[in-house]
Design a protein around this nucleic acid. Structure first.
Length: 106
DNA sequence: CAGTTGACGGCCC
DNA sequence: GGGGCCGCCAACT
């Protein structure tokens, strides 16, 4: 059973803990290659399981949420993140504080 | 099968 | 400092 690139990405996104966020580049790196940043975006775009794939926890390297977000509205993503304790400042997240630290397990 | 796109990232000007 | 362009890989048409 070979996991496709998308599944790897979903697997990583699914592991993002509560109250933390990850950048596309980070997710891509965890999925296998950092250059998959675009692929990550595409993967989340198709988002086959938004229920268990918290795509809203994935932000750009600037800490800004994607504007093309489409499973409830761009603001919806921000609200969800704030609900987890993440503080948005001027529309962006404090990456230094909320960026997901990869467990040593990996 | 080939071309184009895509929720990005990084480098260059 | 800000804006723009190119590059990476995979999926979609």
């Amino acid at each position: 059973m070979e996991k496709t690139t998308f599944e790897k990405i979903y697997d990583v996104v699914r592991k993002i803990p509560y109250g933390q966020v990850a950048t596309y580049g980070q997710v891509a790196a965890l999925a296998g290659n950092k250059r998959w940043a675009r692929v990550v975006g595409y993967a989340l775009h198709v988002n086959p399981d938004p229920d268990r794939i918290p795509c809203y926890r994935v932000v750009t390297k600037d800490g800004n949420v994607s504007r093309a977000f489409a499973f409830g509205g761009e603001n919806r993503q921000i609200e969800l993140l704030e609900a987890e304790g993440i503080v948005f400042v001027d529309g962006h997240v404090d990456m230094e504080k909320y960026q997901w630290e990869v467990p040593t397990d990996w």
